[in-house]
Design a protein around this nucleic acid. Structure first.
Lengths: 342, 342
DNA sequence: TTGAAAGCGCTAACAG
DNA sequence: CTGTTAGCGCTTTCAA
C-alpha cells in the first residue's frame, strides 16, 4: 500500500507537501497540486486514517446512538433503519464514517459512548432519541463533546441542538384536517403518556380544538397489554362516540384498528383516523392510513450537517433548534363527512 | 488524557511493559501487572485506538454491510435492526466496535467497503445479505480480507463462510406441520422467485410434499403491484382450493391476507398459513401468524464470533457453513383439520 | 510556496 | 521477565 512518502518521492516533493495537497491547502501552487495528485492516482494512494487520527486528533467518524431497546417494539420502527441509511449516506459525501452504539439500557449506552470517546474513536455523536433523564446528554455536555439530538427538546436544554419536527403544529394540523372533513368530536389516542413527542402532539391537538371551539378530551391511553385500560378506552369511545381519532403513530394505529374492528367499528366508515410517521405500517393493510410524513431523510441530513458544523466550528457553537417540515399524506382512513351533507 | 508513558512512569516500568500488561501478556509477572493496573486506574488511563491501530495494523472495528436499499420495503424488515443490535452487543463484549455500510446499489456498497478497507478502518466485514453476483464478495476474496455472510450460500462458494438457517429444512418442516394438522393441498407463495432463501424454502416444501406423497405446485408469485399476477394467483387458489399456504415471510403474509379477505377467504377458517421470520408482523393483527423463529440473536452472535476467529487465526482459515437452528411458533393462522374429523 | 524535523501514542522485535 | 529501540503514516510548527 502506497504511503505519503511514496507519493512524495514520485512527485519529487516533500511528504509535508503531499499532506497539504490532501487538505487542498491554498498555499500550494496549482502546478504542484496537479503533479502530486497525478502521483497519487498513479500509485492508487489512499490515506491511512489511523495515522491521520493519531497525528491530527480527528477521526472523521461519528457515533450514532440508538435508543435503549427496553421496549422491544421500538426498534422495529422502520424509522431507525431509514435514518441510519440517510446519515450514512450523508456522511459518505463528507468522507465520514459512522459507528453505532446500541444497548439495553441508558447505562449500557453511556458506557459505550464513554468508551468511544475516550478511545478517541469519534468526533461527535448523533443521538436518535430524546429522554429527559438521559445521562448521556449530561456526560457529553460536561466533556464538551459535540453532539446533536434527533428528537423533541426535553426540559430546559438551551445548550443542546435538537433536530425535530414541529410536533405541536402537526397535532394542530391533524385536527384542522379532520375538521375540514367535517369532524368535530375528536379524541387523541396514544400508547405513551410521557414522551415529549406525545405531549407535543397532544398540545397541538388541544390548541387546534380550542381554536375551532371544539371540546377536547384528555389523552386516551391505548395499552394492548392491559385489558382494563383497553376496556376503559372502548367504553369512552362507545359513550362519547367520537367521529375521528388522532393516533400517535401508524404502528399503534394498526393494533388499534384491530381492536375497533373487534367492536364492530369500521375505519373510516364508523370512525376516522389520522396518524403520524408514514412508515410501512401506513400502507400495510386497508384502509391505508392518512398520516404525516416526517421527512426522515431531511432529519438525517440536517442532523449530520449540523453536527459537522459544530465539530468544525472553532468558536463556541451556537445552539439552535432545527425544525424539519412535514407533509400530510391523505389516504383512506379519514372519511369526508362534508361531501355527504352536501 | 493519560498516555502509556504516564502509566509507565507512575508504575516505575517501561512503556513496553505497560503495553504488554494491556494485552495481558503471559510473560509479565503478576506483581508487575498489579502494579501497572493500579497505575492505570489511578490515572484513568484509556488506550488511544488510533495509536494502537497505527502501530499494530489492527483496528478492533468491523464493517457491517447492509443490503442495497433498492427494494425500499426491505430495510423495513425488523431483522436488520435486531441483528445490528446483537452484533454490536457481541462486539462490545470483545472490545470491538461496528461501522456501517449502506447504499442504494451494490456499486455504492462496494465503494464504501473498498474505502473502509483501504483506509484501514476495519479488520473484516459481516455481510447481511447474499447475492449471487455480489462484487463485494469478489473484492473481499481477491484481497484476502476476512468476512462472513449472514445468508444462504449462493453459487459455488466453497471458500466463503456462511451463517444461515437451514431453509430447506424449514420448508420441509412447514409442510410436515401442515400435514400433521390435516392439510394435504398446499401451495408455496413468495414475492421473490430468485433469491436463494426463497428457492431453498421452496425446495424444502417440494421435498416435504414428495415424502408425504402429496402433489406439489410450482412457486406461486405474489406481487401486489402487478394486478395481472394477483389475478393469476387468486385464480389458481380458487381453482385448486389449497387448504394451506406456505408463505415466504410474515411481512408478505400480512399483505396476502388482505388480498384473501378481499376474496372472502378467511384465515385460518378457509385457508391456513404458515410463514417465516417471526418478526413484529407475525403478531401485529389477528390471526397471529404461525411462523418460524430464525433466532436472529444466534445468527448475529455466531457471525461475529466466527469472523473474529477468522481475523485472529494465523493459519488459512477453514471455511464452514454455520447452521443456526430455528423454532416453530404455533399461533393462530393454521387450522387443525384433524380435530374436526375426529 | 515548499522543505525539514519533531512528534502523535503505541507495538514489536531484539537484547539481556 | 523486562527494557531498549525503531518505527507505524501522517500532521504541523518553524524555517527558508
Amino acid at each position: 500500500m502506497a504511503t505519503i512518502k511514496d507519493v512524495a518521492e514520485r512527485a519529487g516533493v516533500n511528504p509535508s507537501t503531499v499532506s497539504r495537497v490532501l487538505k487542498d491547502n491554498r498555499s500550494i501552487s496549482q502546478k504542484t497540486k496537479d503533479k502530486v495528485r497525478k502521483a497519487m492516482t498513479e500509485l492508487g494512494y489512499v490515506p491511512n486514517v489511523a495515522a491521520q487520527m493519531l497525528a491530527s486528533g480527528l477521526t472523521h467518524n461519528i457515533g450514532l446512538v440508538f435508543p435503549p431497546l427496553a421496549t422491544p417494539d421500538r426498534l422495529s420502527e422502520p424509522f431507525f433503519m431509514r435514518i441510519l441509511s440517510t446519515i450514512t449516506h450523508e456522511a459518505k459525501l463528507k468522507d465520514f464514517t459512522i459507528s453505532i452504539a446500541t444497548g439495553k439500557s441508558l447505562d449500557d449506552l453511556l458506557e459505550q459512548v464513554t468508551l468511544m470517546h475516550q478511545q478517541k474513536r469519534v468526533d461527535g455523536f448523533i443521538i436518535l432519541y430524546s429522554d429527559q433523564e438521559d445521562p448521556i446528554k449530561t456526560y457529553l455536555l460536561q466533556n464538551n463533546i459535540p453532539f446533536v439530538i434527533v428528537g423533541a427538546p426535553e426540559g430546559n436544554d438551551e445548550q443542546i441542538t435538537y433536530i425535530n419536527n414541529d410536533n405541536q403544529l402537526m397535532g394542530r394540523t391533524a385536527v384542522e384536517h379532520l375538521h375540514d372533513k367535517g369532524h368535530d368530536n375528536i379524541f387523541f389516542v396514544t400508547d405513551d403518556l410521557k414522551s415529549e413527542v406525545a405531549s407535543e402532539r397532544f398540545m397541538g391537538y388541544v390548541k387546534g380544538m380550542l381554536r375551532l371551539d371544539l371540546a377536547y378530551r384528555p389523552m386516551v391511553l391505548f395499552d394492548p397489554s392491559d385489558a382494563e385500560k383497553v376496556d376503559e378506552l372502548m367504553t369512552a369511545i362507545e359513550e362519547a362516540k367520537p367521529s375521528a381519532l388522532v393516533v400517535i403513530s401508524d404502528r399503534v394505529t394498526i393494533r388499534l384498528m384491530q381492536l375497533l374492528s373487534y367492536y364492530q367499528l369500521k375505519v373510516p366508515d364508523d370512525i376516522s383516523i389520522i396518524t403520524f410517521n408514514d412508515s410501512i405500517f401506513s400502507t400495510l393493510i386497508h384502509p391505508y392510513l392518512t398520516t404525516f410524513d416526517v421527512h426522515i431523510d431531511h432529519l438525517g441530513e440536517a442532523s449530520f450537517k449540523r453536527l459537522l458544523e459544530i465539530i468544525q466550528s472553532t468558536t463556541e457553537p451556537k445552539c439552535e433548534q432545527i425544525i424539519v417540515p412535514f407533509t400530510l399524506k391523505e389516504r383512506e382512513s379519514v372519511r369526508n363527512r362534508r361531501s355527504l351533507s352536501q
